[in-house]
Design a protein around this nucleic acid. Structure first.
Length: 219
DNA sequence: GCGACAG
DNA sequence: ATCTTGTCGC
Protein backbone atom coordinates (compact mmCIF):
# COMPACT_ATOMS: atom_id res chain seq x y z
CA UNK A 1 0.00 0.00 0.00
CA UNK A 2 1.33 3.42 -0.93
CA UNK A 3 1.84 5.86 1.92
CA UNK A 4 2.47 9.54 1.40
CA UNK A 5 4.75 11.34 3.79
CA UNK A 6 3.51 14.87 3.59
CA UNK A 7 5.03 16.20 6.78
CA UNK A 8 7.17 15.56 9.82
CA UNK A 9 5.76 14.05 13.01
CA UNK A 10 7.91 15.80 15.58
CA UNK A 11 5.92 19.01 15.86
CA UNK A 12 4.65 21.63 18.26
CA UNK A 13 0.88 21.81 18.68
CA UNK A 14 0.86 25.06 16.73
CA UNK A 15 2.59 23.40 13.79
CA UNK A 16 0.23 20.44 14.09
CA UNK A 17 -2.77 22.78 13.91
CA UNK A 18 -1.38 24.33 10.73
CA UNK A 19 -1.03 20.88 9.16
CA UNK A 20 -4.55 19.85 10.19
CA UNK A 21 -6.03 22.98 8.66
CA UNK A 22 -4.04 22.49 5.48
CA UNK A 23 -4.74 18.78 4.98
CA UNK A 24 -8.40 18.92 5.91
CA UNK A 25 -9.09 20.76 2.68
CA UNK A 26 -8.23 17.61 0.76
CA UNK A 27 -10.72 15.38 2.56
CA UNK A 28 -13.40 13.90 0.30
CA UNK A 29 -16.81 13.43 1.88
CA UNK A 30 -18.40 11.55 -0.99
CA UNK A 31 -18.33 7.82 -1.68
CA UNK A 32 -15.31 7.16 -3.85
CA UNK A 33 -14.61 3.46 -3.79
CA UNK A 34 -15.79 0.25 -5.41
CA UNK A 35 -16.78 -3.18 -4.20
CA UNK A 36 -15.70 -3.92 -0.65
CA UNK A 37 -14.27 -7.41 -0.24
CA UNK A 38 -11.91 -6.64 2.62
CA UNK A 39 -12.36 -4.32 5.57
CA UNK A 40 -9.62 -3.45 8.04
CA UNK A 41 -9.81 -2.52 11.69
CA UNK A 42 -7.03 -0.35 13.07
CA UNK A 43 -6.16 0.09 16.73
CA UNK A 44 -3.22 1.15 18.86
CA UNK A 45 -1.90 0.04 22.22
CA UNK A 46 1.12 0.91 24.34
CA UNK A 47 3.93 -1.08 25.91
CA UNK A 48 6.77 -0.40 28.31
CA UNK A 49 5.05 2.29 30.36
CA UNK A 50 3.80 3.94 27.20
CA UNK A 51 7.24 4.43 25.69
CA UNK A 52 6.44 2.03 22.85
CA UNK A 53 3.48 2.47 20.51
CA UNK A 54 2.02 -0.71 19.07
CA UNK A 55 -0.31 -0.49 16.06
CA UNK A 56 -2.40 -3.34 14.70
CA UNK A 57 -4.28 -3.80 11.45
CA UNK A 58 -6.82 -6.62 11.26
CA UNK A 59 -8.09 -7.48 7.77
CA UNK A 60 -11.44 -9.22 7.57
CA UNK A 61 -13.42 -10.52 4.61
CA UNK A 62 -16.60 -8.63 3.85
CA UNK A 63 -19.43 -9.22 4.46
CA UNK A 64 -18.52 -12.54 6.06
CA UNK A 65 -16.22 -10.87 8.61
CA UNK A 66 -13.57 -13.58 8.86
CA UNK A 67 -10.09 -12.54 9.98
CA UNK A 68 -7.87 -13.29 6.99
CA UNK A 69 -4.74 -11.20 7.53
CA UNK A 70 -3.09 -8.86 10.00
CA UNK A 71 -0.01 -6.79 10.72
CA UNK A 72 1.57 -5.33 13.83
CA UNK A 73 4.14 -2.55 14.10
CA UNK A 74 6.04 -1.11 17.05
CA UNK A 75 7.96 2.13 17.36
CA UNK A 76 9.01 4.51 20.12
CA UNK A 77 6.28 6.87 21.31
CA UNK A 78 7.24 10.44 20.41
CA UNK A 79 4.14 12.52 20.97
CA UNK A 80 1.99 12.85 24.13
CA UNK A 81 -1.74 12.32 24.25
CA UNK A 82 -3.41 15.69 23.78
CA UNK A 83 -7.13 15.83 22.91
CA UNK A 84 -7.37 17.05 19.32
CA UNK A 85 -3.91 15.75 18.38
CA UNK A 86 -4.32 12.01 18.74
CA UNK A 87 -3.20 11.29 15.18
CA UNK A 88 0.23 12.80 15.73
CA UNK A 89 0.75 10.23 18.49
CA UNK A 90 -0.68 7.15 16.80
CA UNK A 91 -0.53 7.48 13.01
CA UNK A 92 3.21 6.88 12.52
CA UNK A 93 2.90 3.36 13.93
CA UNK A 94 -0.37 2.81 12.07
CA UNK A 95 1.29 3.63 8.75
CA UNK A 96 4.13 1.21 9.54
CA UNK A 97 1.56 -1.53 10.07
CA UNK A 98 -0.45 -0.69 6.94
CA UNK A 99 2.73 -0.67 4.93
CA UNK A 100 3.33 -4.33 5.70
CA UNK A 101 -0.13 -5.88 5.31
CA UNK A 102 -0.19 -8.26 2.38
CA UNK A 103 -3.93 -8.07 1.81
CA UNK A 104 -4.80 -4.52 0.81
CA UNK A 105 -8.16 -3.67 2.40
CA UNK A 106 -10.88 -1.77 0.53
CA UNK A 107 -12.07 0.18 3.57
CA UNK A 108 -10.52 1.26 6.86
CA UNK A 109 -12.26 1.52 10.24
CA UNK A 110 -10.14 3.61 12.59
CA UNK A 111 -10.41 3.90 16.36
CA UNK A 112 -11.25 7.53 17.03
CA UNK A 113 -12.92 10.42 15.24
CA UNK A 114 -12.89 11.39 11.58
CA UNK A 115 -14.56 14.74 10.82
CA UNK A 116 -16.04 14.84 14.33
CA UNK A 117 -13.04 16.82 15.46
CA UNK A 118 -12.61 20.47 16.53
CA UNK A 119 -10.78 21.23 13.27
CA UNK A 120 -12.51 18.49 11.25
CA UNK A 121 -9.37 16.38 10.97
CA UNK A 122 -9.41 13.45 13.33
CA UNK A 123 -7.24 10.34 13.07
CA UNK A 124 -9.50 8.66 10.48
CA UNK A 125 -9.06 11.66 8.16
CA UNK A 126 -5.31 11.65 8.69
CA UNK A 127 -4.94 7.94 7.97
CA UNK A 128 -7.35 8.04 5.04
CA UNK A 129 -5.63 10.98 3.40
CA UNK A 130 -2.04 9.72 3.76
CA UNK A 131 -3.01 6.30 2.39
CA UNK A 132 -5.59 7.66 -0.05
CA UNK A 133 -7.99 5.00 1.22
CA UNK A 134 -11.67 5.17 2.20
CA UNK A 135 -11.70 5.54 6.00
CA UNK A 136 -14.29 5.74 8.76
CA UNK A 137 -13.87 7.12 12.27
CA UNK A 138 -15.34 4.83 14.94
CA UNK A 139 -15.04 6.35 18.42
CA UNK A 140 -16.24 4.98 21.75
CA UNK A 141 -16.74 8.40 23.28
CA UNK A 142 -17.40 12.01 22.35
CA UNK A 143 -14.72 14.56 21.53
CA UNK A 144 -16.82 17.51 20.32
CA UNK A 145 -20.42 18.15 19.34
CA UNK A 146 -23.91 17.70 20.71
CA UNK A 147 -26.75 15.32 19.93
CA UNK A 148 -30.17 14.18 21.01
CA UNK A 149 -31.03 10.87 22.58
CA UNK A 150 -30.50 7.79 20.45
CA UNK A 151 -33.43 5.33 20.29
CA UNK A 152 -32.59 2.12 22.14
CA UNK A 153 -32.69 -0.08 19.09
CA UNK A 154 -29.81 -1.64 17.15
CA UNK A 155 -29.07 0.45 14.08
CA UNK A 156 -30.77 3.62 15.34
CA UNK A 157 -28.74 6.81 15.05
CA UNK A 158 -28.99 10.59 15.37
CA UNK A 159 -26.75 13.25 13.87
CA UNK A 160 -23.88 14.81 15.77
CA UNK A 161 -23.74 18.60 15.42
CA UNK A 162 -20.98 21.10 16.06
CA UNK A 163 -20.95 24.80 15.26
CA UNK A 164 -23.75 24.47 12.74
CA UNK A 165 -22.28 21.45 10.97
CA UNK A 166 -23.36 17.81 10.95
CA UNK A 167 -20.03 16.22 11.78
CA UNK A 168 -21.04 12.64 12.44
CA UNK A 169 -23.58 10.13 13.72
CA UNK A 170 -24.23 8.69 17.17
CA UNK A 171 -25.01 5.06 16.45
CA UNK A 172 -26.57 2.38 18.63
CA UNK A 173 -24.88 -0.84 17.54
CA UNK A 174 -26.40 -2.78 20.42
CA UNK A 175 -29.35 -2.18 22.79
CA UNK A 176 -28.70 -1.19 26.41
CA UNK A 177 -25.14 -0.07 25.74
CA UNK A 178 -23.45 3.25 25.06
CA UNK A 179 -23.62 4.34 21.42
CA UNK A 180 -20.65 4.75 19.06
CA UNK A 181 -19.57 8.00 17.43
CA UNK A 182 -19.22 7.57 13.68
CA UNK A 183 -17.81 10.09 11.22
CA UNK A 184 -16.35 10.24 7.74
CA UNK A 185 -12.60 9.91 7.53
CA UNK A 186 -11.98 10.13 3.78
CA UNK A 187 -13.69 9.15 0.52
CA UNK A 188 -16.95 8.07 2.22
CA UNK A 189 -20.20 9.79 3.17
CA UNK A 190 -21.67 9.69 6.65
CA UNK A 191 -24.67 7.61 5.61
CA UNK A 192 -22.49 5.03 3.90
CA UNK A 193 -20.11 5.01 6.84
CA UNK A 194 -22.94 4.18 9.23
CA UNK A 195 -24.09 1.38 6.92
CA UNK A 196 -20.62 -0.20 6.80
CA UNK A 197 -20.14 0.05 10.55
CA UNK A 198 -23.41 -1.82 10.98
CA UNK A 199 -22.27 -4.26 8.31
CA UNK A 200 -19.17 -4.98 10.39
CA UNK A 201 -21.06 -5.34 13.66
CA UNK A 202 -22.62 -8.61 14.85
CA UNK A 203 -23.62 -9.25 18.47
CA UNK A 204 -21.28 -6.86 20.26
CA UNK A 205 -21.14 -3.10 20.68
CA UNK A 206 -17.89 -2.77 18.73
CA UNK A 207 -17.45 -3.77 15.06
CA UNK A 208 -15.66 -7.10 14.54
CA UNK A 209 -12.86 -5.21 12.82
CA UNK A 210 -12.22 -3.11 15.90
CA UNK A 211 -12.48 -6.11 18.22
CA UNK A 212 -9.85 -8.05 16.30
CA UNK A 213 -7.54 -5.05 15.98
CA UNK A 214 -7.86 -4.34 19.68
CA UNK A 215 -6.79 -7.84 20.63
CA UNK A 216 -3.82 -7.65 18.27
CA UNK A 217 -2.78 -4.26 19.62
CA UNK A 218 -2.98 -5.40 23.23
CA UNK A 219 -1.66 -8.91 23.53
C1' DG B 1 -11.02 32.92 32.95
C1' DC B 2 -13.58 28.24 33.59
C1' DG B 3 -14.69 23.52 31.96
C1' DA B 4 -14.36 19.79 28.25
C1' DC B 5 -11.35 16.75 26.39
C1' DA B 6 -10.90 10.58 20.77
C1' DG B 7 -6.94 7.05 22.77
C1' DA C 1 -4.42 4.18 26.63
C1' DT C 2 -3.01 1.69 31.25
C1' DC C 3 -3.01 -0.39 36.37
C1' DT C 4 -6.49 -5.08 37.43
C1' DT C 5 -10.60 -10.08 39.85
C1' DG C 6 -14.48 -10.88 40.70
C1' DT C 7 -18.97 -9.55 40.33
C1' DC C 8 -23.59 -7.26 39.39
C1' DG C 9 -27.06 -6.85 35.80
C1' DC C 10 -29.37 -7.29 31.23
Amino acid sequence: MQIQHRHEWALTTDAAIAIQQELRQEIVTQDRFGVVNYVAGIDVGFEEEGTITRAAVAVLTYPTLQLCDHAIARRPTTFPYIPGFLSFREVPAVLDALETVKTTPDLLLCDGQGLAHPRRFGIACHVGLLTNMPAIGVAKSLLVGKHGEVPDQRGAWVSLQHKGDTIGAVLRTRPQTKPLYISSGHRISLETAVAYVMGCTTKYRLPETTRHAHKLASG
